[in-house]
């Protein structure tokens, strides 16, 4: 399960991730982090069975939590399957299938948006 955590000016100063790990024993994998002085966003990955518990703790600590079920979205009306995005994706979430169509493996997507910026037909977008 991937969770997008949004921090406000107060929570951004707190060691929330460490507290959550200590309290729940969940192993938290940070996929992407963008933390500034007043706000921050961290994308984490956790075991599905710990998800509820981790979410509860984070929310109690004042963090806004969004469950990310979906990967980057591709509009197949616009996609011509050129594959410009394939070598750009840092996690190899975008590949060709047997028909040479471009497909996205949702579990591998870390919502970095790199592919969105390179698509020549604007077929890709982030769900959030």
């Amino acid at each position: 399960m991937r969770l997008l955590l949004r921090f406000d000016s107060k929570t951004v100063r707190e060691p929330v991730i460490s507290r959550t790990t200590l309290e729940t024993g969940a192993l938290i994998n940070i996929l992407r982090a963008s933390v500034g002085a007043r706000r921050g966003e961290i994308l984490i990955e956790i075991e599905d069975k710990k998800a509820k518990e981790v979410e509860e703790v984070l929310e109690r600590l004042g963090v806004d939590v969004v469950e990310l079920a979906e990967a980057v979205q591709k509009d197949d009306e616009l996609c011509v399957h050129c594959g410009a995005c394939v070598s750009i994706c840092p996690t190899e979430a975008i590949t060709f299938n047997g028909e040479r169509r471009v497909v996205i493996t949702a579990e591998k997507c870390v919502h970095c948006g790199a592919c969105v910026k390179v698509c020549p037909t604007k077929a890709l977008s982030l769900p959030l």
Partner: peptide, 23 residues
């Protein structure tokens, strides 16, 4: 094949032509 070697490292490849559409 999607991967080529440059200076001993594997580098990922993007086609810019659509093989799906060509087919």
């Amino acid at each position: 094949s999607g991967k080529v070697e440059i200076n001993g490292e594997e580098v990922r490849v993007s086609p810019l032509s659509s093989f799906y559409m060509a087919e």
